[in-house]
Amino acid sequence: MMRVANVFAVVTVFALVAIDGSSSPHCAELQREQPVETEMREIAQNLRCPVCQGQSVYDSNADLAQQMKQTIREKLNAGETPSQIVAFFKARYGNYVLMAPPRGGLHWGIWLGPFVLVLIGGGLVVWRVLRSRQQIIAVAGHSAHDDMERLEL
């Protein structure tokens, strides 16, 4: 009698577990980010919210930003490319809505500036070093090598 009861209990438990497991619709399913959301994020993070203090459209909770994000989603679903969507907003809000100056014409200066400065500075450094070496040779009349030895502290 006890054995039958045990078997019955075990079977019941298993059955309950089985029912519970199969009745839950979210058991093994993982929600994923919608692809349109991923693409929208990549575009919206590089657009500046027109009414916020420097935030990107993606990070902003402003009403206009939400509208822009929704518009981006709709356009992505309609098949537009990211560059078309960016051009759409640029045509309406101007260069301000881009997070960095466009890489054309007038704005090459700021994009290449740092690189050019490093080159100029590096050139200056090299020139100064070489010129001091020549000065040492000229003044002392010794070979540069000997002077290096003497100057070493």
Partner: peptide, 13 residues
């Protein structure tokens, strides 16, 4: 109602 025309005109404030 939904601001689409405003978006086209570049309305922000």
């Amino acid at each position: 109602r939904n601001g689409r025309v405003g978006l086209d005109f570049g309305v922000y404030g």
